[in-house]
């Protein structure tokens, strides 16, 4: 199932934790999304030590032991992977979602979102996919 593992290197110090992330693996939106979920427990600061590298620094709001900080690193890393997955799903389903929401709220989808959906389907070569999507407007609805 898992062809490769994700490795996270982090350093810990008194109430603080720092992780270095490669932006090619972890898009900024995923880093924001994951970091943001910790603002209740931590102060968070992002820095860019080198091109395409993002350092995420946490300082816990209350006292924390080394184990707490290790657990925090694990939680953040896990959340980051989840955020990447969420991002992939929402990017891939963007046009489907625009279509369904437009149709739900405005009665009909706009031509623009149909075009976008068709373009996406083309791009993903789903025309050749046995799991082809049921495109409703083709049947004249």
């Amino acid at each position: 199932m898992t062809a490769e593992n994700a490795r996270f290197t982090f350093s810990i110090d008194d109430r603080s934790l720092a992780l270095l992330l490669d932006e090619a693996l972890y898009p900024l939106d995923a880093i924001y999304g994951a970091a943001y979920l910790f603002v209740d427990r931590c102060y968070i600061f992002l820095d860019r030590p080198a091109d395409k590298q993002v350092q995420v620094r946490f300082r816990t709001k209350s006292d924390s032991t080394e184990q707490d900080l290790e657990a925090l690193a694990g939680e953040f890393a896990n959340e980051l992977l989840n955020q990447v997955l969420r991002l992939r799903i929402s990017e891939s389903t963007k046009s489907i979602r625009e279509y369904t929401l437009a149709r739900a709220f405005f009665g009909d989808s706009s031509q623009a979102s149909i075009d976008a959906l068709l373009a996406e389907l083309d791009a993903e070569e789903l025309a050749d996919d046995p799991l082809e999507i049921n495109v409703p407007w083709e049947s004249g609805t």
Partner: peptide, 11 residues
């Protein structure tokens, strides 16, 4: 400052 590494399965 202590350095650590964790590995998690990448989906």
């Amino acid at each position: 400052m202590k350095s650590h590494t964790i590995e998690l399965p990448r989906p």
